[in-house]
Write a protein that binds this DNA or RNA. Structure first.
Lengths: 190, 190
DNA sequence: CCTACCGATCGGTAGG
DNA sequence: CCTACCGATCGGTAGG
């Protein structure tokens, strides 16, 4: 008889273990121990280990989308949108670095049939960033930069954050985003 | 009786499989099949599966270092060094995307005792990029940007290349590097 | 490099 | 949610 909230504890444990050891190196016995059960009991809550991975990945994808989409839809200058979008993205990473790690690093452990929805979610997200850059170029706010490489530059830097960001460091998510946005907008040369 | 060059074939097979499926999801039987042996025979060439991973990772680390270090030591303007270093890095990725993927994505599967040397190699590499930025700031060629975030920006974009770069695409490594360097040096705003 | 095999461990199930 | 367990597969070894 599952007690309420137990599924969320399990997801949380999976985020921790999958992000630290990787999906394949995490056993159902690791997961069970982390939540204080026997391994067989997990299956009162889930059907397969992979279901946990899928749920973490899809939840994370939705968080990025939900954080950035409203910014893109607002009417603000492109530079402002870019700053805000980067900050929103980094805030999502910072709020749960484990989940971000699983989303960006472990999603390929999903079976090929489950890849498609993740790829679609990522493409949708990339299009949000592309829209900001397009707006900036079309309005003349940005130089006529190559849209796809500008998008890749922004995407690279925000997606790499999970590799090094530690909550509790000297700079919070918004300050990190400002540093990067400033560099990307103004460049390194005077 | 191992025949010569067989170890390299094995490393190549490991690069392919580790980069595609991940280290933990690749079995010694997968590896053996890829080189046309029985799984037990692998152990005439290696002591453990992890040795293959370590060798791939360390070789890759050396390639990045060897490609970029001479550029940093040369006497050229910082902007030129930055372009060249990015191009050299991306060339290493492009020349063997599998090895780059293993180096950047799978190295954490190494046992904790083997982490240290990888981390040291990566820090040494990051210092190379930092030196370029420092030169530019000190010479006045660059604005007084925050060194560590500028380094992270460059590192993010070149390290993310393995995620999307496909050899045979429209742009070669040098052109990709030029696009990114131009954006980083001049920024997106006019 | 093969045959034959080992102990350990894996994800998951049956029955309560 | 536990006990008890299963078939499959794992990395690796012995002996040739």
């Amino acid at each position: 008889m599952p007690r309420p909230g137990r599924k969320d504890e399990l997801l949380e444990a999976a985020v921790t273990l999958f992000s630290q050891k990787g999906f394949h190196a995490t056993t159902v016995r690791d997961l069970a121990e982390q939540v204080g059960m026997k391994s067989g009991s997990l299956y009162a809550h889930i059907a397969t280990k992979e279901d946990l991975l899928e749920e973490i990945v899809m939840r994370s994808a939705e968080q990025f989308q939900a954080a950035v989409a409203p910014i893109v839809r607002s009417d603000a200058p492109a530079a402002s949108k870019l700053r805000q979008a980067m900050a929103a993205h980094i805030r999502v990473v910072a709020s749960d670095t484990g989940a971000a790690t699983v989303f960006l690093h472990e999603w390929k452990a999903l079976s090929p049939e489950r890849h498609a929805s993740v790829i679609a979610a990522r493409q949708g997200y990339e299009e949000l960033l592309a829209a900001i850059i397009r707006q900036g170029v079309e309005s003349g706010e940005f130089r006529p930069v190559d849209e796809s490489y500008a998008r890749l530059l922004v995407l690279s830097v925000v997606n790499w954050v999970y590799q090094w960001y530690k909550p509790g460091g000297p700079l919070g998510p918004d300050q990190v985003a400002d540093r990067f946005a400033e560099l990307i907008l103004h460049g390194m040369e005077p």
